[in-house]
Design a protein around this nucleic acid. Structure first.
Lengths: 195, 195
DNA sequence: ACTAGTTGACAACGAACGTTGCCAGTTGTT
DNA sequence: AACAACTGGCAACGTTCGTTGTCAACTAGT
């Protein structure tokens, strides 16, 4: 561990450290989204980022912490886009659900690496497992207006993810537009269930 | 590798081999359901089964093959119970859905080890990942009468699994009876959606 | 120019694993 | 009784990984 006090190449110490962290996160996404979580090791991430393995521990205590950080960053980006669309217009309940699902699907599947990390590779890491379901619930609660809606929304979120995974993995022959359309119907019906 | 021709301890060779395979499968379930997939190694499985590591390769080519075999055995047992209940009575559509969901939930969550393997640990193995979604689809197609029902059924299966995982992981305060009741409502509503 | 901070390439160490070999003891067959 | 098949405990080999150390080259401040 260094004192990290001086500036180097005209860049102050804390900024250099932040840059290195970003490079590690980018390399993590690249490896997770192409070779898979299994191949995302400390050694490989540092080689991809062209960084000394020593700098890995400057920002993360272990590989799991990097995996979680990459995952959280992707979730945050998607959540921001979804909330932005939510606050956008007022076109009735069905239109609202459609816009939210469209934004969710688009923002999580536009980049194949992001889709693979969120929907495929996130299953392969023990560290990501608890976070995965908390995330599904988080998005469900995002659209649930009342506490009574939460169970329905979580049910719908599980169904939505199931179909997205089928599409992403190629086992479900469905275009993105078709998926969004069908999921909107199914979600609207689900949210209409009265106990 | 031995010729496996003789009998030993009054047991013929093929039967001894089958016994060893069963012991390995049982040890695999025990380890996967308690310590987790991550701790389920060739060494640990053989130690749990009190078997020489050499006998592992007599029945499996690697640890992934054992994980898949354990998973498939649990799925088969659950599928048999579900199909048995399906052919049972004729009490209308809602009753049918209720019986199927009840049988599915009971048979997959009665044994905590089974529940952990099917709903939690199955996410942690790359070998189990593709099989996991094929299984969800398999159960969905089991109850889907027409091809048009398949998408709806798969959506409902994803929602059901999402809520089961929430219950099993303890993050969703719900009893099994409540879960079955609510999922029946939601599934019935989902299957009623007309395009 | 000189010293100290900084960087990246490379090596080294221990730990865990998959896999294979060795060996003493047990059981079946002749 | 003798020999071959069988079993389980233990060790050994190579590989990969996490982690730490070494060292030459580069940069900032005095």
């Amino acid at each position: 561990m260094y004192a990290t006090t001086r500036s180097y190449a005209g860049v102050p110490a804390d900024e250099r450290k932040a840059d290195r962290r970003e490079r590690l996160l980018d390399s993590g996404l690249q490896l997770m989204g192409t070779d898979g979580v299994h191949q995302t090791t400390v050694r490989n991430v540092c080689a991809e980022a062209r960084l000394n393995p020593r700098y890995f521990y400057e920002s993360f205590t272990g590989i799991d912490e990097l995996l979680v950080a990459v995952f959280d960053r992707l979730v945050d980006e998607a959540a921001n886009k979804v909330t932005a669309v939510m606050a956008h217009g007022a076109d009735g309940r069905d239109g609202f659900v459609h816009r939210v699902i469209e934004a969710f699907v688009e923002s999580t599947t536009a980049d194949p690496r992001v889709a693979r990390v969120l929907y495929l590779e996130s299953y392969a890491s023990e560290a990501l497992h608890p976070r995965r379901f908390a995330t599904a619930r988080h998005f469900a609660y995002l659209v649930a207006a009342t506490p009574e809606d939460r169970l329905r929304a979580e049910f719908a979120a599980g169904g939505l993810v199931q179909l997205i995974v089928g599409m992403v993995s190629g086992s479900l022959p469905l275009t993105r537009a078709e998926l969004i359309h069908r999921c909107t119907e199914l979600t609207v019906a689900t949210m209409r269930v009265r106990t």
